[in-house]
Design a protein around this nucleic acid. Sequence first.
DNA 1: ATTATTTGGTTTCAATATGCAACTAGTTTT
DNA 2: AAAACTAGTTGCATATTGAAACCAAATAAT
Lengths: 148, 148
Amino acid sequence: MKHKSHQDSICPVARSLDVIGEWWSLLIVRDAMIGVKRFSEFERRLGMAKNILTARLKRLVEEGILRVVPASDGSAYNEYELTKKGEDLLPVMVTLRQWGDKYMFRAGEEHSVLLDARDHKPLAEIAVRSTDGRKLGVGDVEVVLPGR
Amino acid sequence: MKHKSHQDSICPVARSLDVIGEWWSLLIVRDAMIGVKRFSEFERRLGMAKNILTARLKRLVEEGILRVVPASDGSAYNEYELTKKGEDLLPVMVTLRQWGDKYMFRAGEEHSVLLDARDHKPLAEIAVRSTDGRKLGVGDVEVVLPGR
DNA sequence: ATTATTTGGTTTCAATATGCAACTAGTTTT
DNA sequence: AAAACTAGTTGCATATTGAAACCAAATAAT
């Protein structure tokens, strides 16, 4: 059996995960965000099997998250680069990173950090807020289904 | 082969995905956020196989994202509820939702929406910002590895 | 110009994960 | 007391993953 698709869900979270929730997909997007473009560079940096990388790149291109362009250095090869849709995953990436920072490392354990390139300072912590700026927690939100 | 773990990565994104990046895991967390607590309710709502649900719940409990508590209605069964660590996934959930809202639905296609429970209005759109409040895109950030 | 190496894959194979259905022990409802 | 529900477990077929071998085209080295 193929793993079950969430493509037809009425929930945006489920549909998003259908596309970017496969093993490796978001890590490919992560590396694309820091400028990785070539097949071999994704392979080396991620340490993943070529066949899986091929499949994930294909899906990400089909879904409009990456696009294939002729290599910028004039060689005959192609490069993969983020589309606007792909770049718009930055907030997802940053929230995952901030959660991981907080919970997935023991005190003093080293990890990579994401900085504002202008002043090399950490980013602001992302919070869920109401339109008038109140910070919201799980208990402050509600899901409304279509047609209600 | 087991799928490769990202547990030992120095990247917080990778470590986060190691825990919550398996198929179904974030959808279980999503439902837990709207108050789903019982095994059968997760099963019904998600339409997933019981054995997988069992495995995911077990992992999420082991990782401290959910906790098992005696049923609140006095029955002999247990309930699963979010820990603080689990609740802190709200920003991840909201960014995934906002991205899905934007890209995964055709114009006019209906989907569920997440509202501020107080005034039933949509949430503010989440953006990545510097500490001084500038909105940042993919080109405005840099990753720094440990020991540099 | 010829050879060697790199790149970007595809193919094959074994191990694991997913999904489905059947089964079950304990609990709750009728 | 019987029926139905809950929260699983088990067994099986199929999919997905990962490793390694293979390959053609492009590039670099000699």
